[in-house]
Nucleic acid binder design. Structure first.
Length: 849
RNA sequence: GCCCGAGUGGCGGAAUGGUAGACGCAGCGGAUUCAAAAUCCGCCGCCGCAAGGCAUGUCGGUUCGAGUCCGACCUCGGGCACCA
């Protein structure tokens, strides 16, 4: 072979690993373990560059840790339940099960050639009955442990299709298929009682030292612990049972500034009022025709309806406020009722201005008497302000926090209300009115009520014979599937037809990988050995829901005896990687509509087939609709897996988005060929001058240090840069063949996590023993990392003007003397004495003039 | 709307508060070649003949020194509980 040929080399080494069982995870008490996990994919049918990037990162870590002597678990599976399978069934008549398993087979075939060090023997899909049956067992245990409850919740209801819609299926308040105005509908649903764990999930975030700060912050804000005032308005002329209106506010200091009260359209009082008031009923209906997503509700135009009722202030019953129904009040948070203090809340202010409600300043900035105009005055709670309208003496200058504390104390003392800790986090509704999910293992019996299924009857399998010709849940209209015997009394009963949210599936798969074939959800000794996940890698889009649910589940599994106490935080370290993006190529058709073109259809800014010039839209997340996708299969076919892997590890820091460019892929491929050539010609090139060996060896050690630091610190792009540097050094050196051979062997090892096939090939070529995958990771000799002389930059007033080369330990005074003797410094001083000379040893000299 | 990020040459990016632009791409010049491909060597932020000046989204601040720290803003991206 005279040049590097990935098409023959890559399959050869994949077979060698397979044959040797190199990547099978083995429980080995003699070794420390390392569990690296990438978020498992949804089986859409095609892998994309985002997957390649995600799994290559995990693979780099897995292979590196293996070389460092760890017993590594690096598994892969499929997040296989979900709506796309049902959509495919509706659109193409496919069976969700067949569609999903075919996609899994296709994606696996696309992934295999990438050479990931995965233990495929542990593979499973969440739609395997063996998996979801164990999930049902977990559900039954959690129900028994009081971790699950049943209550009402609102869903998006499509009145034409007679079906529940996901938020993404509601577009501008209309159903995506029917186009009908969506309604909010109340259903009885199952809930995980995650809000019972709110404080615990919040407090434990502090212990997650190896999670990104931003993720911990996002979760903390999501849980949303607040301390505020809980009180009740009196309601004059209210329907029976609504004489008082409970309210929660996080701003007790503004209790003397409200000018209205407002309740949600779903509030029980609103429902009571609409019964005999058609106008209120019409207004509430309008509010409910908006979908359930918080974003939609908060961005909608603020609308209100004055009920005509008055509420009375707890501290002064003579103080009356109008009671409104408003579309921006959320029933899910607090009590579904708010006080409106327009001066100090922008949303309340917008509402007050729109409906001509008064605005009362509660406090003003220090040294200003200006009243609130268009912008609400909302200072930091730690900022001092002057209170003009509150319970204390007018003109008091204190921080908002202090005023809140004092007001709270006053209300508690007088019995007007009480301090209350409130969380934003709600219970996790898990019921879905869909087919393609894990059936909830409960039975409805006329005699016994709602009872859990017996464990020996698990798994409760989904029926295969279902039709999607009608909207709605096929389980509901299946002729026989619902029929069953009551597990308690044995009489005929009906199965629950709701299935579980797919977030349940992904909330414990990490634990299942430790014993994927077990007939219980987990096996103690396996979980003890492998848990926790040492390094979890995935997209930032999962920062809140998936990760929070997984944290809850690990706790629930510990309580129900399925995980050890040590595993209640399942992910020791988390890394969130960026997306892979690409330019978008667009032309317009005769009617001016955008037409998108795949990258391979475009050359030199023109559509290959027609020669038409394309408009280049800046990089965006790869998406099918914009056609800015690069298929990893094509890249592997034309360049090999190592090129794709090398590319996605190069240039961009892993947490940031990376833009795929054709020239970048070319460059990656060229570099790998160059490395191969350097290895092949190691004895033939250069002058063979042994006096140059030390310089090369020093470079080798510096590279070991940099590559290692890069991998450890999730800065693979810096590892790649260091490896380019080593290749340049080997290429240019005139050192002896022996030194170069040694350098190239180290190169093979350092490259092996990223480009494992090429690494095996050159390791073999240079006479390395066994597989490079089994070789011990090289160590940098600290003595080789220091230089005797250093270059010190000299600044004049903070700007670099010249530099001096000095021995590394030269004393400060000597450095200063040398610096002041430099031509550039003398010129700048122009005979004057410097005001100050700052010498930072080993770093810099700054002469201040 | 709310929460969280990110903005540095033509491009991707590097830089414990201490030489801004490592490394790579593109470009330019050269070597090799009958020619090309491939490969190798060199140059490469902007303005300026130069001295020098200007440059890390914008504006302000702290510091001997700011891409880095602080404040305000702009733009783009992620999440908002039934997409996964």
């Amino acid at each position: 072979m005279s040049r590097y040929d990935p098409a023959t080399v890559e399959p050869k080494w994949q077979e060698a690993w397979e044959k040797a069982g190199t990547f099978l995870a083995k429980r080995d008490p003699a070794k420390p373990k390392y569990y690296v996990l990438e978020m498992f994919p949804y089986p859409s049918g095609r892998i994309h560059m985002g997957h390649v990037r995600n799994y290559t990162m995990g693979d780099v870590v897995a292979r590196y840790k293996r070389s460092c002597g760890f017993s590594v678990l690096h598994p892969m599976g499929w997040d296989a339940f979900g709506m796309p399978a049902e959509n495919a069934a509706m659109e193409k008549g496919a069976n969700p099960r067949d569609w999903t398993y075919q996609n899994i087979a296709d994606m696996k075939e696309q992934m295999k050639p990438l050479g990931f060090s995965l233990d495929w023997t542990r593979e499973f899909a969440t739609c395997d009955p063996e998996y979801y049956g164990q999930q049902q067992a977990l559900f039954i245990d959690m129900l028994a442990a009081g971790l699950i409850t049943r209550k009402n919740a609102v869903v998006n209801w499509d009145p034409v299709d007679m079906t529940v819609l996901a938020n993404e299926q509601v577009i501008d308040g209309k159903g995506w298929r029917s186009g009908a105005e969506v309604e909010r509908k109340e259903l009885t649903q199952w809930f995980f009682r995650i809000s019972d764990f709110a404080d615990e999930l919040l407090a434990a975030l502090d212990g997650l030292k190896d999670w990104p700060e931003k993720v911990r912050l996002m979760q903390s804000n999501w849980i949303g612990k607040s301390k505020g005032l809980s009180f009740s308005f009196g309601v004059k002329g209210a329907p029976a049972g609504f004489e008082t209106l409970p309210v929660y506010t996080t701003r007790p200091d503004t209790m003397m500034g409200p000018t209205f009260a407002a309740i949600a359209a779903d509030h029980p009082l609103a429902k009571a009022l609409e019964k005999d008031n058609p106008e209120i009923a019409a207004f509430c209906a309008k509010c409910r025709g908006m979908g359930t997503s918080e974003a939609a509700i908060e961005q909608a135009e603020k609308l209100g309806y004055d009920t005509g009722l008055k509420v009375t202030h707890p501290a002064d019953p003579t103080l009356e406020l109008p009671l409104w129904i408003a579309n921006f009040v959320l029933m899910d948070y607090g009590t579904g009722a708010v006080i409106g203090c327009p001066a100090h809340d922008q949303r309340d202010l917008d509402f007050a201005r729109k409906y001509d409600l008064p605005v009362i300043d509660v406090f003003k900035p220090l040294g200003s008497d200006e009243s609130v105009g268009k912008t609400a005055f909302v200072p930091q709670k730690t900022e001092k302000v002057r209170y003009v309208q509150w319970h204390g003496a007018p003109g008091t200058e204190i921080t908002c926090q202090e005023a809140m504390d004092r007001t709270l104390a006053l209300y508690e003392e007088k019995g007007w209300g009480e301090a209350k800790v409130q969380f934003r986090l709600r219970d996790w509704g898990l019921s879905r009115q869909r087919y393609w999910g894990c059936p909830i293992p409960v039975v409805h019996c006329d005699a016994c009520g709602v009872v859990p299924e017996k464990k020996e009857n698990l798994p409760i399998e989904l029926p295969a014979d279902v039709s999607f010709d009608k909207p709605g849940n096929p389980l509901d209209r299946h002729p026989t599937w619902r029929d069953c015997a009551c597990p308690t009394c044995g009489r005929p009963a009906r199965r629950e037809t709701d299935t579980m949210d797919t977030f349940v599936d992904s909330s414990w798969y990490y634990a299942r990988f430790t014993a994927p074939r077990a007939t219980t959800p987990t096996v103690a000794e396996e979980a003890e050995y492998w848990m926790n996940v040492d390094q979890y890698i995935g997209g930032i889009e999962h920062a809140i829901l998936h990760l929070l649910y997984s944290r809850f589940f690990a706790r629930a599994m510990q309580i129900t005896g399925h995980l050890p106490k040590t595993a209640i935080e399942p992910f020791d370290a988390l890394f969130t990687q960026g997306m892979v993006t690409h330019e978008i190529y667009m032309t317009r058709d005769e009617r001016g509509r955008a037409v998108y073109h795949l990258p391979e259809e475009v050359e030199d800014g023109k559509v290959k087939a027609t020669g038409e010039a394309v408009t280049i839209v800046p990089s965006a997340k790869m998406s099918k609709s914009k056609k800015n996708v690069v298929d990893p299969v094509n890249i592997v076919d034309s360049f090999g897996a190592d090129t794709a892997r090398w590319f996605v590890m190069s240039d961009s820091p892993p947490e940031r988005d990376v833009e795929w460019t054709a020239s970048g892929a070319d460059a990656a491929s060229k570099h790998l060929s160059r490395v191969w050539r350097l290895a092949a010609e190691v004895d033939a090139r250069g002058a063979g001058d042994a006096s140059q060996d030390l310089a090369l060896i020093k470079t080798v050690h510096r590279t070991i240090a940099e590559v290692t630091a890069g991998i450890e610190g999730f800065a693979f792009n810096k590892s790649v840069a260091a490896l380019y540097g080593l290749a340049n050094a080997v290429q240019r050196t005139d050192a002896s063949a022996g030194a170069k051979r040694q350098a190239m062997q180290v190169m093979a090892q350092l490259m092996s996590p990223m480009t494992p096939h090429l690494a095996e090939e050159i390791w073999d070529m240079l006479g390395g023993k066994g597989l490079v995958a089994d070789a011990e990771w090289p160590r940098a000799d600290p003595a080789m990392l220091v230089d005797d002389e250093i270059v010190l930059p000299i600044q004049i007033n903070g700007k670099k003007r010249c530099e001096i080369t000095v021995p590394k330990d030269l004393p400060r005074e000597e450095v200063e003397k040398l610096a002041l003797a430099e031509d550039g410094v003398i010129r700048a001083l122009d005979g004057r004495a410097p005001k100050k000379v700052i010498v930072v040893p080993g770093r810099i000299v700054n002469v201040v003039i």
